[in-house]
Design a protein around this nucleic acid. Structure first.
Lengths: 155, 155
DNA sequence: ATGGATGCAAAGTATTTGCAACCTG
DNA sequence: CAGGTTGCAAATACTTTGCATCCAT
């Protein structure tokens, strides 16, 4: 339930984990370094694969347990774009944003549009709701894929 | 890939199904009537339960196969709010809308905010994307639950 | 009568959990 | 050295699929 310092950093995560009375293990260190050091949206499987490059013995179960801990701590966001696996993304030192998802190549571009954020709050308030959070994903074709399509390349 | 007539109706679905060379069975009729006749967002399990009230023998597999067919025909929308099962919602005679989801009681209220729709198009276009569709869910506490909370009722 | 549809059970995904061994604090 | 953590395998939740039978056209 803790909201961490905005720019806690990896060391801060270690300290926060210990402060919670949970342990800082080599597995957790590898997972945190990999996920927090990446600016990508990684699925549990992708994260597992990368982490196994450091330590072959790390299991998928530990990856799942660790990302769930990090999500619960508020330092990682869980995203669910299309169907299939969820993705995980570092929340450290980053402001809220939404996503453009390319339906052709899968690339994800982040954006923040303050006018939309304001209108979302207005929509909720006008209808008597209190807004907690939201999810907004825009699906379309990215500039690169549009160019490829224009060049006649089949999808 | 067919985009159906906006107000096709249940008979129109039967005709469209036959036009595609697939068959109109009692199971499909029961499922279509139940889902299209409901203004709720139903999970496959909820739909299966309701449909079994008409015909005990209808299997979950048939429910899944039928909703997938209807989604592919464009007459039903598949929604994935939180975790867990997907929900299905009739698209017939309805315009696009987004959702407010109560994190306390799960109720779903639909809304349409043209200014947000315009800004989504603008966000995509400005960044060189072509927008195909989007998903926007606002999570918060509905008026009823807010009143209950104000009255001191624990969640 | 013919090939799509159904029910059933088994298989698939994605993720979680029980448990004994292990290791951090 | 106490209790949280790990790897493994089994379990879970949701959905899809193979197959023999059935039935809509």
């Amino acid at each position: 339930m803790g909201t961490p310092e905005p720019r806690m950093g990896i060391d801060g995560i270690r300290d926060e984990i210990r402060r919670r009375g949970v342990r800082w293990t080599p597995q957790r260190e590898a997972i945190v370094h990999t996920l927090l050091g990446s600016d990508e949206h990684l699925t549990a499987e992708e994260l597992h694969r990368q982490v196994r490059a450091k330590d072959r013995s790390i299991s998928a179960a530990t990856v799942y347990r660790t990302v769930n801990l990090l999500v619960e701590m508020g330092v990682v966001h869980k995203r669910q774009f299309g169907e299939g696996s969820a993705s995980f993304e570092s929340a450290l030192g980053r402001v809220h944003h939404d996503h453009l998802v390319c339906t052709r190549c899968g690339i994800i571009q982040e954006f923040l549009e303050a006018r939309i954020e304001d209108l979302q709050e207005e929509v909720a308030t006008q209808r008597g709701w209190s807004l907690l959070h939201h999810r907004m994903d825009l699906f379309g074709v990215c500039p690169t894929c549009r160019a490829a399509e224009a060049a006649g390349e089949p999808s």
